[in-house]
Design a protein around this nucleic acid. Structure first.
Lengths: 338, 338
DNA sequence: GGCGACTCTGTAAACCCTTGCAGAATCGGC
DNA sequence: GCCGATTCTGCAAGGGTTTACAGAGTCGCC
């Protein structure tokens, strides 16, 4: 079970076994073979805790996300995971459910695990956590929140650009009566999208109106929000959703009410999750390159070939507008007038 | 940073600090306060590796699943996670991508982490792994594969019953020309569904035909399979999918080809993932209670109030047939005849 | 055959915590 | 004020690895 048992069986010292297992020092071929044999026979698994403890490092990176149930976050996690495994790292993931408390406890957990690096992909970061992390002395990377610093990299997406493209497109189709469906309105990154919406509209269509509805970040939340929205006339001609997941919920509710998309109402999402392509009608949305984000996250956390992690940098990633079938010209007469 | 630093700062021994932090022994109020203060001031995080090493236990449970990208597995994982956190356990998850190699390496990883218990929710288990796990001397629970044993619990779902219900329903609607869309045909649990299909049909509609198409377990895989299926006439009147994820892909492809569901073709899924309710048409499927599975998994891994984990048991969970809008009477004339 | 230079291996300390055991402090009761 | 019981605390061993350091072999060459 332990290194010592293997050592005894192979007739060597624990140091030698350790060296064989880690393979960074040269061990004579015959010795190595004996050790390997003993390892196999004993079905020995090194105790990872002891290893991390003794080694000081851990070859594990931590990932903290807001909502694993949203495929957007899952995709990022999976991208990081894939890079990690390719490089022999493990990943541990934690979910905050958009709460600051769970973020704080997840951070503590990760620090307790002595992760080699930590990716924080949440919307609810607070100053205290940032401070704690910058003192932690491990590479940290924030997505969307916080700011670059000593050992802190930051990655953000130019949401504004994505929103602008949507607004341009929709206004060019004659829309001026908007709804914005979002979740947890207080959160920074979402505010950015909302503010970008106002700003863009101010230019593209100054007299446009926007009704905002807030619900939870889920299919049901989107549906619920649509229901709320439709409770009071007039029905907007375009519904922009803060993300695809909620948009798909919206589509469902509209369909149940026999409101046609895009003939009666246009709907847009954000993220371009796989689902947006498979729902009906396929969703007009903004693609956020989760793969690229994942790779960048991983890169920011691990010392690369050149030896040092490029901490302190700030990356900005551009999204990409994707037109599909959920958007069309604004309806001319209000078929929903009561 | 270390226990010792805290101890020094608080003017006590490391043992006392440890006791304060773990709270299982009584420590005098004033001492406790001093220690807590020191902990706070130093922003001390216990080193979890050292803790697990010293304590011998780890309060971490491992979960291994086949395909995290399928919401079915994600839901189970999340259910386990939620129970774990409620009881102060951590969870670590690994994905096998349906390969035996990744399963083996995940198992080794988990064993190396000295997890307190391990849930194996995969389709590709082999004997060697089972043997290794039963020697590991920690509670293990298999979902769908393996068999109960010394410290091994097994949970399985009565798929057969679900398939029977689908078949009964479809044949009663006049269907006799079937397709079965599945993935990785060699895997046990999926075979069970497929065999159940044959068996049920033998009774319900002996002259019925079944065409089988295999593709990957994903939205794209479902779509691809549908494409493959439609390549050769005649188009079946009912397409049964091995799970909802693939079924949603099938729906997409059918829609693109203007094949109406359920008027022209009926489609069924399996699992009842959230998405099956939000796609269009909403999917007729078989509900598999992931929450219940998750709770049962957790229960099987952790010593309950009575002190001992109920290992060696075998649980069978019944699925539930859910009729929605993707199924209807078989079309009478073959509108697709060429 | 002896010497130096390598190559390989062992010894032992360190990593940070938990916990059994025993000693110290405190308390109640007389 | 003393004693025993009780509560609290410290000592030190151990848990399974890594790794610096030094020692033991091996080899080639003069």
């Amino acid at each position: 079970m332990s290194l010592e048992a293997v050592a005894k069986k192979a007739g060597v010292s624990t140091a030698t076994v350790s060296r064989v297992l880690n393979g960074l020092t040269v061990v004579k071929g015959s010795t190595r073979a004996r050790v390997m044999k003993a390892v196999a026979e004993l079905k020995y698994h090194p105790n990872l805790h002891a290893r991390s403890l003794a080694g000081g490092r851990s070859r594990t990176v931590g990932v903290i996300v807001s909502n694993l149930d949203n495929p957007f976050f899952l995709d990022i996690y999976r991208a990081v995971e894939s890079d990690c495994h390719a490089q022999g790292y493990e990943v541990v993931v934690a979910n905050t459910a958009y709460t600051a408390e769970q973020l704080a406890s997840s951070v503590r957990l990760m620090l307790g695990r002595r992760v080699a690096g930590l990716a924080v992909i949440v919307s609810e970061v607070d100053e205290e956590v940032v401070a704690e992390l910058s003192e932690a002395n491990i590479p940290v990377v924030f997505y969307d929140v916080g700011r670059a610093g000593k050992n802190i990299t930051k990655i953000r997406v130019n949401y504004r650009k994505g929103v602008e493209r949507i607004v341009e497109y929709l206004t060019s189709l004659g829309h001026s009566d908007f709804a914005f469906i979002t979740h947890h309105a207080a959160l920074g990154p979402l505010n950015e999208r909302q503010n970008a919406l106002y700003d863009s509209l101010k230019i593209a269509s100054p007299k446009a109106t926007v009704r905002v509805v807030v619900d939870s970040d889920s299919l049901d939340g989107g549906r619920q929000a649509a229901r709320e929205l439709l409770r009071s006339a007039p029905v907007p001609t375009a519904i922009m959703c803060v993300n695809d997941l909620m948009a798909v919920g919206v589509l469902k509710e509209l369909r149940e009410r026999r409101i046609r998309v895009p003939e009666d109402v246009s709907v847009t999402g954000f993220d371009n999750i796989k689902l947006s392509e498979f729902c009906h009608p396929a969703l007009t949305t903004v693609h956020i390159p989760r793969d690229l984000i994942g790779h960048t996250l991983f890169h920011s956390l691990t010392p690369d070939a050149s030896g040092s992690a490029a901490a302190g940098r700030e990356y900005v990633i551009d999204p990409e507008f994707v037109v599909r079938d959920s958007t069309g010209p604004a309806r001319s007469s209000d078929v929903f007038a009561r």
